[in-house]
Design a protein around this nucleic acid. Structure first.
Lengths: 332, 332
DNA sequence: TTGAAAGCGGTACCAA
DNA sequence: TTGGTACCGCTTTCAA
């Protein structure tokens, strides 16, 4: 592979000059520049990232740490981040942490030794201290879906509480009188917020009871189980707000097996916007703006990397109610 | 950050010695080694990957190029590759090519300048020349799901034809007499093979007709459309083999809307094994061993990187028939 | 068994 | 506007 020295020789200039034209730094004569560019082209020259990283420049690489790319929530984010990164000349390293703090720490070590320019992390388990450690080593970090209020940390979060309210109000608008909620693990911020949103709207209603909230695990089976249990206690439920789409799908299966018709007997809405309209009836949901979030995350990270001024705080995004078949009004 | 020189000073030895203990190369006195290790620990020393890459070692980074991580086929592969990479001390760069040859070429350039140690690529569009160019620059490559027979290229492929045969034979076993196939884009190897497998089994049957094969696009909507069209022509279809799970889901929705019951009126089977048992009835399918494939891909790549002997040919994996509700026999 | 020193391919400061 | 050159942190001969 051609090196900067090869280019400098061919162009009849010094390596310093070549470096200047590569980086667009300092003064370079038009003609000299042309000569250099020609030489680069002729030699099919590509600067060695390792060398420039070592010489103090950055690695043009950022990392995305997610709990598990298998969770259908994350590929969309990964994709949009990668697109944005690509456009900015960056490369994306993918890490799966399984929400395991040890694995996370391990990644931090590796990423640091690789001179990663910045990290985008989605984690329920991360604590402010870890983020700030990174920042003190001047590794910029953007946190996704886990706000850390009171710390100088940049995070991106969907307005879950408001999204949940939208979902429940929509059910009410569709005529539901007794609405249950299958919540996610309450030690997870997003699950908690959604449950709170549900409560805020329902607590006023006559039919509200704490036992209308049943814990799921954010997975299909948990949704199934929860739905069965809820109906045992409250056979007259006519609306269900599931804490995420996977649980909604589980609930849908349970309803199907119990012989309940959706949306006629029970209206059902999920959360996340990942359902790909796979199921019948198609699931209403509250969609998180995932691709916007990915793009934004990358843009914020870029600003941090470039040391442009950014507010190190929680940035909130709107969730969008998406109405499909599973909550439509009875035809009559 | 501590450097190798810091360590050498603290341990009272030369950098060469430190380097030897890091790499386990050359002779080092037991006690010296201990002193060095203590110093490394004391300083929390992490070797700079950029420096060692520059100095001729490798970057401990491999890349995965997929058409689109949003396609539910790929996260599973990505995950298993990342796991394997992680275990081997490697880091994974994720690239989305959209099957666009320009993007692919662009990635190749970038990855080369980053001294990536190897590439795993899933692409319908890749041609042998491109792979061999990389190999000639001594960048090892493993190709997934696209065999390139006759070239010195290592590829990993599921036995699609056989898998398709399994699917169709299963339908026949379940009593189907008129079986349709919704095929994928036939310029894609896997789609072609599956269609061939279908034909091989069905051609002998009395009811076979070329018009029982209808082209889809590997996506939900295409499956829906195809199912509708097929029934227009052949109202007596009682079995459907969809070329992938997404199209099967589309077909399922179409059947639902046409008032056909699955599996009573029509039995339906997909291909890939990605359906997550989301739908009702749960979809039978032919599962590709994706996580095995990812793991294997990484292991092969490792061997190539280490210049261990490996046969540069097509390696085939078995597909597994998974029987669920959508093809079960009528209860009577 | 250990150390000195020459790179690896860039960047950036200082002079010219 | 350009060139010379001292690093960046590590690996790897070659000698000692």
């Amino acid at each position: 592979m051609a090196t900067i020295r090869d280019v400098s020789k061919l162009a009849g200039v010094s390596v310093a000059t070549v470096s200047r034209v590569i980086n667009g730094s300092g003064y370079v004569n038009k003609e000299t520049e042309k000569a250099v560019r020609d030489a680069m082209k002729a030699l099919n020259y590509k600067p060695s990232v390792a060398a420039r990283t070592l010489a103090g420049k950055q690695s043009s690489t950022v990392a995305l740490i997610v709990p598990d790319i298998l969770n259908p929530f994350f590929p969309e984010i990964a994709r949009s981040i990668e697109d944005a990164a690509q456009e900015l000349g960056y490369t994306l390293v993918l890490c799966n942490s399984d929400n395991d703090p040890d694995k996370e720490m391990n990644y931090f070590r590796i990423l640091e030794s690789k001179h990663i320019d910045g990290i985008i992390i989605a984690s329920y388990t991360i604590v402010p201290r870890q983020i700030m450690d990174l920042q003190e080593k001047s590794i910029p970090v953007v946190v996704i879906d886990n706000p850390l209020p009171g710390y100088p940390i940049l995070s991106l979060v969907t307005k879950h509480r408001e999204g949940a309210r939208k979902a429940v109000r929509h059910l009410i608008d569709q005529g539901c009188r007794k609405i249950a909620h299958i919540c996610g693990p309450l030690h997870v911020y997003s699950a908690r917020e959604r449950a709170l949103g549900y409560e805020e709207v329902c607590r006023g209603q006559g039919n509200f009871a704490p036992s209308l909230i049943y814990p799921g695990d954010f997975r299909i089976d948990g949704g199934y189980e929860a739905m069965i249990r809820l109906f045992e206690q409250h056979p007259d439920i006519d609306g269900v707000f599931a804490g995420n789409d996977l649980m909604a799908i589980g609930a849908l299966k349970a309803l199907y097996h119990m012989g309940k018709s959706v949306p006629d007997d029970v209206k059902l809405i999920g959360y996340d916007g990942i359902s790909l309209s796979m199921v019948v009836p198609e699931l209403s949901t509250v969609a998180q703006p995932m691709s916007k979030m990915g793009k934004l995350a990358m843009n914020f990270l870029m600003k941090l990397i470039r040391k442009e001024p950014v507010e190190l705080t929680i940035h909130e995004l709107e969730a969008e109610l998406i109405i499909r078949k599973s909550t439509s009004k009875p035809v009559g």
